[in-house]
C-alpha cells in the first residue's frame, strides 16, 4: 500500500474493479440524498460529500498516474464556481417576485418530490458545489500537489 501510493500506481485490479462498480452506486445514493434533501435528512451538503466520496474512491484505488490522464485540473474549480453562482442566481431571481431569497416557485404538496419551491434547486446547486469543492480540495492536496512541488 505504502509503496504503490508513493509511486501513484494504484491498487490491484480486484480493488479497481470493485471501486469502479461501487462508485456508480455511491453517485446514485449521493444524488438521491441531494434530491430528497427537502423531505428527509440530508440535503445539498451531505449529498455533496457523498458525491465527492465516489470520485475520491476512484482516485484512491486507481492511483495518481492513471487519474491524471483523464482528470483536468481546472474542472473542480469551474464546477465549484458555477454551482455557487447558480445558487446565488436563485437568490437574486427572488427579486423578480419581490425579494432577495424569496421562494418564488409554487410550493406544491408537502412530502412530494416536487415541492418546496426553490429549495430542491438550491440543494442541487449546493450538492454540485460541495461535491466539486471537496473533490477539488482532495485533488489539490493528494494529486496535483505532486505536480507543482517545489524543492524545499
Amino acid at each position: 500500500m505504502q509503496a504503490t501510493s508513493e509511486s501513484g500506481g494504484g491498487l490491484s485490479p480486484i480493488v479497481k474493479t470493485v471501486a469502479r462498480w461501487m462508485a456508480g452506486f455511491i453517485l446514485v445514493f449521493g444524488l438521491s440524498v441531494v434530491l430528497y434533501g427537502h423531505l428527509t435528512p440530508g440535503g445539498g451538503f451531505a449529498g455533496g460529500v457523498v458525491l465527492s466520496a465516489a470520485f475520491i474512491l476512484v482516485v484512491l484505488s486507481h492511483g495518481r498516474r492513471e487519474v491524471l490522464q483523464i482528470l483536468s485540473e481546472r474542472a473542480p474549480t469551474i464546477y465549484d464556481g458555477l454551482a455557487a453562482l447558480a445558487f446565488l442566481l436563485l437568490a437574486v431571481l427572488g427579486y423578480a417576485a419581490g425579494g432577495f431569497f424569496l421562494n418564488f416557485l409554487p410550493k406544491g404538496q408537502p412530502f412530494q418530490l416536487w415541492s418546496g419551491g426553490i429549495i430542491p434547486l438550491c440543494n442541487l446547486a449546493i450538492g454540485v458545489k460541495v461535491g466539486a469543492c471537496l473533490f477539488g480540495v482532495f485533488a489539490a492536496l493528494a494529486v496535483f500537489r505532486h505536480l507543482h512541488q517545489r524543492s524545499a
Binding site: 469551474i78 465549484d80 455557487a84 453562482l85 437568490a91 432577495f100
Partner: peptide
C-alpha cells in the same frame, strides 16, 4: 442584499475566469 451578493458573485466568477 446586493452589498453581499455582488462581491460573492464576483468572488466565484474569478476562479472560473482564472481557470479559463
Amino acid at each position: 442584499p446586493l452589498f453581499i451578493a455582488i462581491p460573492l458573485a464576483v468572488a466565484f466568477l474569478f476562479p472560473v475566469f482564472e481557470k479559463l
